[in-house]
């Protein structure tokens, strides 16, 4: 199984953390991105994620390989959700294991930042009132 995965089901964070186990790694850092109840001043009631899975998996795997190379992390994993998510649900989980903490923190930080910039996943916010909106949607034609 690839170290970067797209999941339509809830992320099992305990299982992901267990997958980071490595006798040579003294540090394991995990980051969990969760659905929050507000964005840019608006109340958010739920989120919907869509992805281009073939490209998301290949680009995500490139990000993980870069994190291992740049920071010397021994094991780096990422899972990203698709589908309908409620407030508080885990949308993305990143784990990095390395010999020491600095490398593990740096690798985890790199992965979440690059995934947000590069991996073809889109979110749509739903509000108490009014139509749902895609985030970072391309500008409308004037």
């Amino acid at each position: 199984m690839s170290d970067f995965r797209i999941s339509a089901d809830a992320i099992d964070q305990a299982a992901e953390l267990a997958a980071l186990e490595d006798a040579a790694s003294g540090a394991a850092v995990c980051f969990c991105g969760r659905v929050r109840n507000h964005n840019e001043g608006r109340v958010v009631v739920r989120l919907e994620y869509e992805c281009y899975e073939e490209l998301a998996v290949s680009e995500g795997a490139r990000v993980l390989a870069e994190a291992r190379e740049r920071f010397g992390a021994s094991r780096v994993l990422c899972v990203h959700r698709t589908g309908d998510l409620a407030i508080g649900d885990a949308a993305v989980w990143v784990g990095a294991a390395a010999a020491h903490r600095n490398e593990a923190f740096a690798a985890a930080r790199y992965v979440i930042d690059e995934v947000k910039k590069r991996v073809p996943i889109w979110k749509r916010e739903h509000y108490p009132e009014g139509p749902a909106e895609w985030i970072n949607a391309a500008p409308s034609e004037a």
Binding site: V92, K116, I121, W122, N136
Partner: peptide, 10 residues
Amino acid sequence: VAFMPPVAGG
């Protein structure tokens, strides 16, 4: 050929 808006994951 796939056309995509700016990504917005995480």
